[in-house]
Design a binder for these strands. Structure first.
Length: 327
DNA sequence: AAGATTTGACCATT
DNA sequence: AATGGTCAAATCTT
């Protein structure tokens, strides 16, 4: 627990520090290699920090490749709260337009049900971790399109991933989405070879996007808006047309990217995938602490805004040892 | 053929 | 009885 917090803070601090160094190198501009090395270092730090958050239940989403270009639109919202059952629950609003798809958060989910919900225009989808049986992972999530804004999805997460999805994230290439399978077209060319599951996933993303762009917005309850997530929207049409130029270019610029940055989940969904080495490694209640309104600011940690990182400080007086915060 | 999704049935809770 | 969550057979996709 302490170790995780320290690591998290250290990584964030280091990210900030290295970014400052980079800033100096930009005035006047230094060698390309130097900048590249610094960028890589920054990204690794954020990678680790975010992985820690992820491993504790935060599905911190981002599109690292787009981050450098657009950090303005932070539509997506995370809220975490405790359920009466004591389960941790993550509530998330996300915009379909931001390519941030509720069906794709970097994890592999398997749909096991769908139910019409009273008073809701859209059915609620029930998903559980694909590795439920193979690895006994009990993580589940519910996805429901917002009534008021069908471009938004409300996603509830329950349970933590105890599975190791490392293999899922590893050794994949930036995918190019294919046609929606729900539309019955499966014959699009794919410039890149994708793993089977990835192809399905990509299709899913875009089928949802297509079907998602129908009505308009709602906000759940702002009171508990705790953790605005990373959101680096990419025009869905762009992506659908396979225009990954920016992403590819960015990858090129970055050169040596961390595994997470190479993950398909990242590039196709704006999610910051979890580093394999951290998957399911932590069983602390960091996320619960983080989700408590008293323990975290509303600063979006995901916009890579250095100044906002300053606000991401744990309250030193926060009663981490107080059992009541974990009950 | 294997794995994922769909969807009506079933179950638990209120 | 109504509602939400899960199961599981049928179906679909690859």
């Amino acid at each position: 627990m302490d170790w995780e917090l320290n690591t998290l803070l250290n990584e964030l601090k280091q990210g900030k520090e290295v970014t400052n160094q980079l800033m100096k190198h930009l005035h006047p501009p230094s060698s390309h290699q130097t900048r590249q090395a610094l960028l890589h270092k920054i990204l690794c730090s954020y990678d680790k920090a975010l992985s820690i958050l992820n491993s504790n239940g935060f599905l911190v989403e981002t599109n690292p490749t787009a981050a450098a270009f657009d950090v303005s639109d932070k539509k997506d919202v995370f809220k975490r709260r405790k359920t009466s059952s004591g389960w941790t629950e993550q509530l998330r609003l996300c915009s379909a337009k931001s390519l941030d798809n509720p069906l794709d958060d970097g994890y592999c989910w398997r749909k096991y049900g769908q139910k019409a919900i009273l008073g809701s225009n859209f059915p609620r989808g029930y998903y559980r971790c694909t590795h439920r049986h193979s690895q006994g992972c009990l993580a589940i999530k519910q996805v429901q399109r917002s009534d008021n804004d069908p471009t938004n999805f409300e996603v509830k997460y329950r349970g933590r991933h105890t599975c190791n999805q490392a293999s899922h994230f590893a050794a994949t290439i930036v995918p190019v989405p294919t046609e929606s399978k729900e539309k019955g077209n499966h014959s699009r060319k794919r410039p890149f070879q994708l793993e089977q599951k990835q192809k399905q996933k990509v299709q899913h993303v875009f089928s949802s996007l297509e079907s998602g762009l129908v009505v308009k917005t709602e906000d759940l309850d702002n009171r508990e808006q705790i953790f605005p997530s990373f959101s680096f929207p990419v025009e869905s049409e762009q992506v659908k047309n396979g225009l990954f130029a920016e992403a590819l270019m960015e990858n090129d610029i970055m050169g040596n990217l961390s595994p997470a940055f190479m993950s398909p989940a990242t590039s196709e969904s704006n999610y910051f995938s979890v580093s394999p080495c951290h998957m399911g490694s932590f069983e602390s209640d960091l996320t619960d602490i983080m989700s408590d309104p008293t323990s975290v600011t509303n600063s979006p940690i995901g916009d890579l805004d250095i100044s906002s990182l300053d606000k991401l400080e744990f309250d030193p007086s926060f009663p981490f040892d107080n059992p009541e915060f974990f009950s």
